[in-house]
């Protein structure tokens, strides 16, 4: 039974005040400030007037920035798609493994997940660089084959390709873990029933497994999409001048261009897109729960 606050006023205050005050003063207040700034304009370098104008948002939707917004959405969507294709068989294999193999495989997926993001990105840089492991590897094989001429290193870094590879590399565990959780919860006898009734493995996957694991698949997709959309480090380190994402533009407004109101507006656009993705997820999951519990 849940209590009313009056039943234990002291406990209510002791457990309620610290987190609520912290959230209000040190989380919602800073966000509120940049929200206000997003409707402001720069008077001098440090003086910002909140004028209530929508100019910053209008500017964010001009072709130059709209292209970056769309590019970010595209990168995030592509990343999510690749992660899903890569991750579904992995999640499937893990959920049907023996308990011991399951533990080892989960650990293998989690370890990179726990490793510092910066370090993982750096590790990928070392692989993809012009004089990196892949290029020097191919180069070595190239030189063994006579008559091929000098080896031109593949352009693997500082481009869109590198950003997507990096995003997939960083976010794959985000996809695998929820997929695994959803598949693992699945009643195995439903899969057996499908096989028993004459369906092959692929038919079973698409007619039984995927529909039943849909909430888990949706949350895997959203959990991968959101951080990929807001990624800063990956495009910063792996991308070229042409493959900047929205987070990089925001950073520039605050640290070099010093246009805080515009940066604030971009931040809130990013946040709204995040919330929209979450809303979509809850709608799909609720609909699924209504149709078949």
């Amino acid at each position: 039974m849940l209590q009313r606050p009056g039943a234990a006023r002291g406990v209510f205050a002791a457990t309620g005040l610290p987190p609520i005050v912290w959230l209000l003063a040190l989380f919602l207040a800073p966000l509120a400030v940049i929200w206000a700034y997003s409707f402001g304009e720069n008077r001098t370098l440090v003086d910002i007037a909140i004028t209530g104008s929508w100019a910053n948002y209008a500017r964010a939707l001009k072709p130059l920035y709209l292209a970056i917004l769309l590019k970010s959405l595209g990168f995030a969507a592509l990343t999510t798609f690749i992660c899903f294709i890569l991750g579904l068989p992995v999640a499937l294999a893990i959920s049907f493994a023996s308990p011991r193999a399951k533990l080892l495989l989960l650990l293998a997926v989690m370890l990179p997940f726990w490793t510092n993001l910066l370090i993982r990105t750096y590790a990928l840089m070392a692989i993809l660089r012009t004089e990196g492991l892949i290029n020097s590897g191919i180069g070595a094989i190239w030189s063994l084959v006579p008559g091929l001429g000098p080896f031109e290193p593949l352009p693997l870094i500082n481009n869109n390709f590198a950003v997507v590879v990096g995003l997939v590399y960083v976010h794959l565990p985000f996809m695998v873990l929820p997929l695994y959780a959803a598949l693992d919860r699945l009643d195995r006898s439903l899969i057996e029933a499908s096989l028993d009734l004459g369906a092959g493995h692929l038919a079973t996957l698409f007619r039984v497994v995927v529909p039943l694991a849909l909430p888990g698949i949706v949350s895997g997709i959203i959990i991968t999409f959101i951080p990929a959309l807001g990624a800063y480090l990956t495009p910063d380190l792996l991308g070229g001048t042409n493959s900047q994402m929205i987070a990089n533009v925001i950073e520039r407004q605050f640290r070099s261009a010093n246009d805080w109101p515009f940066g604030a507006a971009l931040s809130f656009l990013l946040m709204y897109m995040t919330f929209a993705a979450l809303l979509l997820q809850s709608l799909i999951v609720r609909r699924h729960a209504g149709g078949a519990p």
Partner: peptide, 16 residues
Amino acid sequence: PIVVPEICLGVAFLVF
């Protein structure tokens, strides 16, 4: 705080 993009929280704290 779990879902807000890091960059947004970062700039909010920078301003704050």
